[in-house]
Amino acid sequence: MKILVCISNVPDTTTKITFTNDNSDFNEAGVQFVLNPYDEIALSRAIELTENGNGTVTVINVGEASTEPTIRKALAIGATDAVRINAKPTDAYFVAKQIANYAKDQSFDLILAGRESIDYNGAQVTAMLGELLDIPSVSIIKKLDVDGDKATVEREIEGGKEIITIPFPFVAGTAEGVAEWKIPNMRGIMSARTKPLAVLEAIEVKSLSKIVKFETPAPRGTVKLVDAAEPEKLIELLHSEAKVI
């Protein structure tokens, strides 16, 4: 089985988000970048599925050289090899076009990515890839089992789940539950240094949109505290002041 896992390099989940350049750019100063947690879960499942020599896992990232520590982390977790498309991504469409261009003649059975990246949260790349490669895509899955040349997945829906079978090749976006988190061991970290990491040039893609301004949510006023001895006052406030119940 040949699996491709698309990975993003994102600010650590504890990052305080600030902006620079008149609020048009994310302020990267002092920010720790990590492998997008949802992508890490996709990678973990890919590695589980190819254990015992049952296939290969290639990771791909569209990014500048600064993303390489994250790519090496993916190799340390257990990916076989890696590809970096050398470009600063502009939007999800740009990323999807680059990955589709790489994947189109590689005959992957399965292409996985996290359900979304925790920075731009577009949740667009997997379905765009499906469309660009003209193969099925399934957006948010919590379970993925392979049986021969097809897979059974559980897709999340409002208030429940759908169980679907999909023939290879297809693209899927993974959520928590699809695998156990894998932590790189010493052997993995050592071998990651010498695993192949190919750097390819990007293709030209017409830009469809761009972010012009960022802002952070307005701070809330001070909390109104209700005495623990009279919690019924809270219900009264929610009813007559906040008018939400």
């Binding site: 920075d119 731009y120 469809l208 949109s209 761009k210 012009v212 301004k213 960022f214 949510p217």
Partner: peptide, 16 residues
């Protein structure tokens, strides 16, 4: 739209 997992908002200019 929301960005950074609701820690921020992004205004997107669409050229398409």
């Amino acid at each position: 739209r929301t960005a950074f997992s609701s820690k921020a908002f992004a205004t997107v200019e669409v050229t398409a």
